[in-house]
Computed example of a mutant assay.
Amino acid sequence: MRRIIAALVVSVDGLIEGPNGDLDWIETWEDPFDLLPQIDTCILGRRMYPGYEQYWRAILADPAGVLPLTGRVATKGEIEYAQFAEQTPHIVLSRTLDRVDWKNTRIVRDVEEIRKMKQQPGKDMHAVGGATLVSSLMNAGMVDEIRLVVTPIVLGEGKALFKAVKERHALKFIEAKPLKSGMVRLTYVT
């Protein structure tokens, strides 16, 4: 059976966005989770999808251009991820979104459709985010692994990653890996 790996960047205080939805504290959007070799599908929520598509398509259109979300030029790792994302199937979980424009992307209406996908052959799936998507998948008992890259910043206010999780989930610690950037990757299984 395929696994779903929720992998997100968080602040030390467990937030994934600042108080106004700001993400300027995240230095790069390349893959600090070391996931690309083991996944063949990305899962996103309705709120995250438009910005995700815009960011990666902007890199593909002009790898040396200034990016809309960060105001900087893409890193080598971000260019590699953009190329990966262009070729990889994406699922957007939404009851309200009418259409998606990026090739290899489709909308599913219910987490049970994702559960059926887990039963199909293939590599693991990456729950990219956001918080509502990850909480929905956790509440349905579908997250098999959690990888958090903790950025050395305290935001104080903002959006908590696990705010909408309805019950306690005991996690088994697998690994803590310091990254060259000063961040730490934590890996747990559910």
Rank of each mutant, 00 (worst) to 15 (best):
L44W: 04
L44S: 13
G45C: 03
R46S: 15
R46L: 11
R46M: 13
R47T: 13
M48G: 14
Y49C: 05
G51W: 02
G51L: 01
G51D: 12
Y52V: 08
Y52C: 06
E53P: 05
Y55W: 14
R57D: 10
R57Q: 15
R57A: 07
I59D: 00
L60G: 11
A61I: 13
P63K: 08
A64V: 08
A64F: 07
V66C: 04
P68T: 12
L69T: 09
T70S: 15
T70P: 07
T70Y: 05
G71P: 04
G71N: 06
R72K: 15
K76P: 07
K76C: 05
K76I: 12
G77L: 12
E78M: 08
I79W: 06
I79N: 02
I79G: 01
I79T: 12
Y81H: 13
A82I: 06
A82Y: 12
A82F: 11
Q83R: 15
F84I: 09
A85E: 11
E86T: 03
P89L: 09
H90S: 10
I91F: 05
I91Q: 02
V92L: 04
L93S: 07
L93Q: 04
S94Q: 00
S94K: 00
R95D: 05
T96M: 04
D98N: 07
D98P: 02
D98L: 14
R99W: 07
D101T: 15
D101K: 12
W102F: 14
W102H: 04
N104P: 03
T105L: 09
T105V: 12
R106V: 04
I107M: 04
V108F: 06
R109G: 07
D110M: 02
E112T: 06
E112S: 14
I114E: 07
R115K: 14
R115L: 03
K116S: 11
M117G: 00
Q119N: 13
P121R: 00
G122K: 00
G122Q: 00
G122H: 04
D124H: 08
M125I: 06
H126D: 13
H126E: 03
H126P: 03
H126K: 02
A127F: 03
A127M: 00
G129C: 08
G130C: 02
A131K: 10
T132H: 13
L133D: 13
V134K: 08
V134S: 04
L137Y: 02
M138Y: 01
N139F: 00
A140G: 05
A140Y: 02
G141V: 05
V143S: 07
V143P: 05
L148E: 09
V149P: 10
V149F: 08
T151M: 13
P152T: 09
P152W: 13
P152H: 11
P152Q: 12
V154P: 02
L155Y: 07
L155G: 10
L155W: 07
G156N: 02
E157L: 15
E157N: 15
G158A: 15
V165A: 03
K166W: 00
E167M: 09
E167Y: 10
E167Q: 14
A170C: 08
L171A: 08
F173N: 01
K177L: 07
P178D: 08
P178W: 06
P178F: 08
P178C: 11
K180C: 02
K180D: 08
S181Y: 09
G182E: 00
G182H: 10
G182I: 10
G182R: 14
Y188V: 01
